[in-house]
Simulated assay, not measured.
Amino acid sequence: MSFIPKSKYTYISFHKPFGVLSQFTSEGGHPSLEGFGLPKGVYAAGRLDRDSEGLLILSDDGPFINKLLDPKFAHPRTYLVQVEGDPLDQDLNALRKGPVIKGYKTKECLVERPEPQPLIGERNPPIRERKNIPTTWLKLTLTEGKNRQVRRMTAAVGFPTLRLIRIAIGDLSLENLEPGQWREILKEDILSS
């Protein structure tokens, strides 16, 4: 384990499992962050929907969280997205250009189809699959974070999201954290400037 110098603030990289709320209070019978042994006083820097998985940053550094979330800084967020269907280049280009969602044109983003497709373990519960319709993993990097934006973007171009995993925020990647695991990090690990 690497040594983390003592800081005035705490910064945590957490792999949020599917079905867990990005808050410390449970609602509607859904589990929250409370059961993962996270340090006292930290809170989520932004949100990751209950039905999404992956990297969640927690901290007690309010000004830093505000900077991380402020749209004017346009910090990148990268997702692996499993969609229903097999998007063609024209579909990927439509995503790159930013589809219109509820009257709002999303910003341009980076979209690629990783080849070979990533091997990702099954989710619990598993995604719904239809026998005659393939699924495809895409990698999207956005610089904005509207509510359920990735899901709405893929649906807008005809490919509903089945599974969504955030794998990076700024300079920080999920690395080898398993669902439910967390580690303390440095602020510089997230944003180098």
Rank of each mutant, 00 (worst) to 15 (best):
E27S: 12
E129M: 10
E112K: 13
F14N: 05
I127S: 06
I101S: 01
H15M: 04
M1W: 04
P126V: 11
K146E: 00
E175L: 09
Y104G: 00
E34L: 15
Y104M: 12
T135F: 01
P17W: 08
T25H: 09
A168K: 15
T161S: 15
D171S: 14
G103A: 11
L95E: 06
S7R: 13
R183L: 01
A74Y: 00
E122Y: 01
G46E: 11
R123Y: 07
G180A: 03
P134T: 07
R163V: 04
R50C: 02
E108M: 12
L177R: 09
L69Y: 08
S193D: 13
A94V: 08
N124P: 00
E184N: 05
L172N: 05
Q90R: 14
K16Q: 08
S173R: 14
E188I: 09
G46Q: 10
L48E: 05
K97H: 11
Y11G: 06
G180L: 03
G98R: 01
L142R: 02
P125E: 07
L162V: 12
G145H: 08
K187M: 11
V150W: 02
R148Y: 02
L56R: 05
P31Q: 13
G19D: 09
H75P: 11
V81L: 01
L56P: 08
D49H: 03
P114R: 04
R47I: 06
V20N: 07
A74I: 05
G103W: 13
L95S: 09
D86P: 01
S22R: 06
R148Q: 13
S7Y: 00
D91W: 01
L172F: 03
S26M: 07
K16F: 05
A155Q: 15
D51H: 13
K139Q: 15
R47W: 05
L164Y: 08
K67N: 09
Q181P: 12
I127V: 15
D171H: 14
K187C: 04
L80N: 07
E144G: 04
Q23V: 06
I12H: 03
W137E: 05
G85E: 12
V150P: 06
K139D: 00
V42M: 04
R47F: 06
P99Y: 08
S2V: 15
I120T: 11
N66E: 15
I127R: 07
S22Q: 10
N124S: 13
L33K: 04
K105V: 02
F64T: 13
P87V: 05
P179Q: 01
K131S: 12
D91K: 10
I167Y: 02
P87F: 03
L162D: 08
R96T: 14
I169W: 10
K67G: 01
K6C: 00
I12K: 04
P116D: 02
Y9P: 02
